[in-house]
Design a binder for these strands. Structure first.
Lengths: 145, 145
DNA sequence: CCATCTTACTTGTGAAATGCAAGTGCAGAC
DNA sequence: GTCTGCACTTGCATTTCACAAGTAAGATGG
């Protein structure tokens, strides 16, 4: 597991602060959710899907996530216009954070997607294992091409 | 467990989106960390501590966290100038989210506070139980006054 | 091989959020 | 009554954001 050298302008060394500086905005975690749970991989999918992110913001977030080593890109071998965005190991390792946030909101707010919520509540570890396995399969297929 | 009616202007019903809309900024989670782990309870403590939040932003974030039912305030009975900020049950229930974020950053970044990290890694459930118990004790003392 | 379409962006503009410095109002201490 | 401490608010410059429009490079159809 390769670690980055400490960024020069970090506000503090607290690990929570590090997470917040990478993920603490209104879009990054939603993009990661789409990659992790919905299997989205291209710019267009992110753009037209979910909560309606602006195109310049999406480009900026993808750039930042890549700079932080959370995602990578590769050209689609079948269509040279397409860039395929993939989660790195560091990225897929955010799965427990996302699931805890989903569980928390589901406990305290009126939310949709109860199927997902119940699946996580039913067996969290199994859910995480499934997420990780789907990622591993996809990643092998993708990097093999 | 009382739930809020769905906010009219939510971008989507996804539970992750709900969490992100309440907590997805550069300060809210740090304030909650200070309450949960460092025992901070007053405006002044939040202000002069941690990563240097601006006073107007702090006032704004505290207002929003209270509006979302994550924290409450009460007057200090011993000093009428002081407001004491306390985590609600919904607030302390964010402990698993914070710990997962700490663990993730500790795994993938160079961060400080290794003592805390090792304590969580060593036994996550015990750590969470201790956090919850400290909260329960403080809350009983506080609301009894 | 040329026109057209798709994809992944960038650019421009106004609105909103943020950061910083200074000031206000109220409670308590002296 | 003055002075200090606490929890803010206000004003202003800077940064970030959202929305609309435009662009470059690769694919597609004739």
């Amino acid at each position: 597991m390769r670690k980055r050298k400490p960024s020069p302008k970090r506000r503090s060394g607290c690990p929570l602060n590090a997470s917040v500086e990478m993920l603490g905005d209104r879009w990054s975690l939603l993009i990661l959710r789409d990659m992790m749970l919905r299997g989205f991989r291209t710019y267009k999918e992110f753009l037209k899907s979910h909560e309606g992110i602006a195109t310049n913001i999406l480009a900026d977030r993808l750039r930042k996530l890549e700079a932080h080593g959370i995602i990578t890109t590769k050209r689609d071998p079948a269509d040279g216009r397409k860039l395929i965005y993939l989660l790195t190991a560091k990225g897929i390792d955010l799965a427990p954070v996302l699931t805890e946030m989903v569980l928390w909101a589901a406990r305290h707010e009126e939310t949709g997607n109860q199927a997902l919520v119940r699946q996580i509540q039913n067996d969290k570890e199994q859910f995480l294992a499934a997420v990780r396995q789907r990622w591993a399969e996809k990643t092998i297929r993708s990097t093999a091409n």
